[in-house]
Design a protein around this nucleic acid. Structure first.
Length: 594
RNA sequence: CGGGGAGUGGCUCAGCCUGGUAGAGCACCUGGUUCGGGACCAGGGGGUCGGAGGUUCAAAUCCUCUCUCCCCGACCA
């Protein structure tokens, strides 16, 4: 029997001054966690109990589709060089250290390399496929800015799994198995989540979904439709645009120089010329810098958007395969020979094909012109003339200038039409609790994973990787259920399901009834804590409300009538229950067989 | 890494401007009275004022450097 008086549950009356989000404040106040350093937390009794329950659920569901391993977190750095992720892909986020001999080591951020190295040594034949291997283990990331309590940390517990299949169809199966296992896991954890299409990143990925929980504390923007099941990460989301009429050509229809003195912004020019920003081209001048073998190389990238649209940097980075930054004034002058405010696509020789930036090809030195798909097929648009105080009319993409490529580069805004059903889209902030990802051949290829196929030929297995952040589940659950007094967790992941609170420990009838109730509930399989502290009732109620336990049984004066009160934390509902039938009462309430 | 903020007992904070040798509330310990929503009375313990250097007769307070933590941004397969 768990007796509160004997346990270490250091609740705080006030939230730590440096906590901002609800989950951070309450997890500290409730004595779940204590901070050791930025982004590094200790779990105390309650936090650990909750954590273990979450891991047990994940393990149970994962065991239905895969096999649990336990891999080291301490890796030779050479492993990360072999896969090509160190130094460029993971960069400073990889924790590094040296052993006593001076050998370079790293703390694992994920385990693709380790898993693949096992596969590499011991997978020989297509007959051994498919495989799904997983583990639940700490991961380390030297985040530039840990934040929001457990939301973004430097050490965290991750369930990561990896699938190896013969072909894309096999990968589909492994992927779908994970998709449904994840749904079962998050359902059982009592989370209200959504599954969204995700950006697969600059690595040129394939299909990817994220499991998201809406909360203002989150770091991701999620676009979704209430009318259908469309949902996507902002980095990936699209929308259907209202058709917008093109202007009629003026003059002979050729690009026409117009005087626009002092008119620099889209709005100014549109107003000055009496047109909508939707008939204007927004010209964005960017640079992509890449470092390869110590050589720094920059590439000019110009993006054209519809005047009223916003560039989505994640989409741009995925398209270009590199990070970009705005051009500096000198760089703008060098390319456009014009001051900012009057930039446009005319008079510049653009690259004809979009290759990887540092990939040597004949256009490698030419600037790249990316045109957002919203401008594809439009005509007689207005853009800067690359000449101070002048703009050009009658510009038609594909005719007057040839883009290097058209791409979806636009950020969706709330209220735009769903690409599937046309209903208005909504945008929410959300926290990512899980991510499934079709890796393809990236690691099989870079690490040389091969098995023999039916015809005795070598073939490369295709991989997938799948992650769940354990503390994100806890955090999301707290964000999802809290009020000014504390929080409540879904029973499946709460440290205790029921707290029994005798109102006065010195009253023998009350104390004995409470002990008896707690014992019987425990014998029936409920996870119970008895608040046997010699505290005033107010203290016990405040603590009970704070620490995330979903149900409370108040044992007070009514014991003489044979009843106690059952308080439902989430709804504040209080009901009387007959002492002799308390076990049955909870069996019914929690839908558990007697 | 850029911008902002903060480090004083376990927690929340005051004191700093205008230097004079550290305080409050909560928590904790002892005794007593209380006992259905963070009780009250009395007594008590606990602080290198983040660290280093400097100015001064004297530094929590002024100056310099530095470390740490938080927030916004950048970043986040």
């Amino acid at each position: 029997m768990h007796r509160w008086s004997e346990l270490f549950i250091p609740t705080l009356r006030e939230a730590p001054a440096d906590a901002e989000v609800a989950s951070h404040k309450f997890l500290v106040r409730a004595g779940y966690i204590r901070q050791l350093a930025a982004g590094i937390y200790s779990y105390l009794l309650l936090g650990n109990r909750s954590f273990n329950k979450i891991m047990a659920i994940v393990r149970e569901e994962m065991d239905k589709i895969g096999q649990e391993f336990y891999l080291p977190a301490l890796h030779p750095l050479s492993l990360w060089e072999a896969s090509g992720r160190w130094p460029h892909v993971v960069g400073e986020n990889l924790f590094r250290l040296k052993d006593r001999k001076g050998a370079d080591m790293a703390l694992g951020m994920t385990e693709e390399e380790v898993m693949t190295s096992i596969a590499l040594k011991d997978l020989r034949s297509y007959k051994q496929l498919p495989q799904i291997w997983y583990q639940i283990a700490p991961k380390f990331r030297d985040e530039p800015r840990p934040r929001s309590g457990l939301l973004r940390v430097r050490q965290f517990m991750m369930k990561d799994s990896y699938s190896f299949d013969i072909d894309a169809a096999g990968l589909d199966v492994s992927y779908k198995k994970h998709y449904s296992a994840y749904c079962r896991i998050f359902d059982r954890c009592g989370l209200k989540y959504m599954v969204v299409e995700a950006d697969s990143g600059a690595m040129g990925g394939k299909e990817s979904h994220e499991f998201m929980v809406r909360t203002p504390a989150g770091e991701d923007q999620v676009v979704s439709c209430d009318g259908c099941d469309y949902a996507a990460n902002m980095e990936k989301a699209t929308s259907k645009l209202e058709p917008w009429g093109d202007l009629a050509p003026e003059g002979d229809g050729k690009p026409l120089l117009v005087h626009t003195p002092g008119q620099k912004t889209i709005e100014d020019v549109a107003k000055f010329l009496g047109v909508s920003p939707k008939n204007k081209i927004k010209t964005l001048a960017l640079m992509a810098d890449e470092v390869d073998e110590g050589k720094k190389k920059s590439r000019q990238i110009v993006v054209l958007m519809r005047g009223d649209h916003q560039l989505n940097e994640a989409k741009l980075n995925a398209t270009v395969g590199a990070a970009t930054r705005p051009m500096e004034e000198g760089e703008i002058k060098a390319l456009f020979n014009s001051p900012p405010g009057y930039l446009g696509p005319m008079g510049i020789e653009w690259a004809k094909e979009l290759h990887r930036l540092l990939f040597p090809h004949k256009d490698a030195d030419k600037p790249v012109l990316l045109v957002d798909k919203a401008l594809e097929g439009r005509a007689n648009l207005i853009a800067g003339a690359n000449k101070e105080d002048y703009h050009l009319k009658n510009l038609t993409p594909g005719k007057d200038f040839i883009p290097t490529a058209y791409a979806d580069l636009r950020s969706v805004t709330a209220g735009e039409a769903c690409p599937n059903c046309g209903k208005p889209l909504r945008i929410d902030t959300a926290v990512e609790i899980g991510h499934i990802f079709k890796l393809g051949y990236r690691y099989s290829e870079s690490m040389g994973l091969r098995v023999l196929d039916k015809t005795s030929m070598e073939m490369m297995p295709i991989m997938g990787c799948y992650g769940i952040g354990m503390e994100r589940i806890l955090t999301a659950a707290v964000e999802q259920g809290n009020d000014e007094n504390g929080f409540w967790l879904p029973p499946a992941i709460a440290p205790f399901e029921i707290v029994v609170s005798p109102v006065n420990m010195k009253d023998d009838a009350v104390r004995k009834a409470a002990e008896d109730i707690a014992k019987r509930l425990e014998a029936a399989g409920f996870d119970v804590i008895l608040d046997d502290r010699d505290e005033r009732p107010g203290v016990k109620f405040k603590d009970a409300d704070l620490v995330g336990i979903p149900f409370r049984i108040t044992v007070g004066k009514k014991v003489t009538e044979g009843t106690v009160e059952v308080a439902i934390r989430s709804t504040h509902e209080v009901r009387d229950a007959t002492i002799t039938r308390v076990v049955e009462y909870f069996q019914e309430l929690l839908g558990r067989a007697g």
